[in-house]
Write a protein that binds this DNA or RNA. Structure first.
Length: 221
DNA sequence: TGCCAGGCCGGGT
DNA sequence: ACCCGGCATGGC
């Protein structure tokens, strides 16, 4: 029974490795996350929730212009200033509040020090992040992986859609199921998870958008 | 012109 | 335990 499951996992693991090789071969390294600091990664992770990255870039440019891309500066900025700064990323009142919520968390729990925060072990830090209002599973994993370089797999809408279209997961699979799917079958490698998720976003943007059917020129076909 | 984008929360079944 | 509406700008 356990042996059978292991074989199954191994088959899936091979499949996931093949997909990775195809994507990397087709698109090359993606050099993620596009940011100049770990703190900027976190800000971007919050701003990009259900939002096109281009709109986030504009918001980050405004924050940089106003010297708000540091923990202390962000923490001291009035909510209205934040909201107005990140307007282009949509849902701006909500996101300003979420940036503040993270900022408060960082100050209260980690003395406003990112390096200190990232000294915590991954599992407990993940739970801490999930307790912050506005940080859900994907955002928490993105922060852990791309800002803290922890080996945790980030599952997003593209990941789910690509896997569904290629019938590699059942339609009822939840976030945790898919994350476990990768982490239990692939090596626990931060570099691999980093590249893999970035490649999913790349192939998703090009070939797996919402109402676009499977396309013959997709490298996974 | 609508639909969609690298989600998350709160309230309702 | 799910399901849904709200949040909101900018690009195609």
């Amino acid at each position: 029974m356990a042996v059978q499951r292991d074989l199954e996992n191994n088959k899936i693991g091979n499949t996931l490795n093949k997909i990775y090789d195809k994507l990397l071969g087709a698109f090359g390294p993606q050099e993620w996350w596009p940011a100049e600091s770990g703190f900027e990664v976190i800000v971007g992770a919050i701003l990009t929730q259900n939002t096109a990255w281009g709109n986030v870039e504009k918001a980050i440019a405004v924050l940089r212009e106003r010297n708000l891309l540091t923990p202390s500066a962000l923490h001291e900025a009035p909510l209205e200033v934040l909201a107005e700064s990140v307007r282009s990323s949509g849902c701006y009142n909500l996101k300003a509040a979420r940036l503040k919520a993270f900022s408060d968390f960082l100050n209260c729990r980690h003395g406003g020090d990112l390096d200190e925060m990232f000294r915590r072990d991954g599992e407990s830090l993940r739970r801490e992040l999930l307790s912050v209002k506005g940080i859900g599973e994907e955002t928490a994993d993105a922060i852990l992986l791309y800002a803290g370089r922890y080996p945790t797999f980030v599952v997003d809408a593209y990941t789910r859609r690509v896997l569904l279209r290629h019938q590699l997961i059942p339609s009822h699979a939840g976030y945790g199921d898919i994350r476990h799917f990768f982490m239990s079958t692939l090596a626990r490698d931060e570099g691999l998870y980093n590249e893999y998720h970035a490649l999913f976003v790349k192939v998703g943007k090009e070939f797996c958008r919402r109402r676009v059917p499977l396309c013959g020129s997709c490298p996974l076909m």
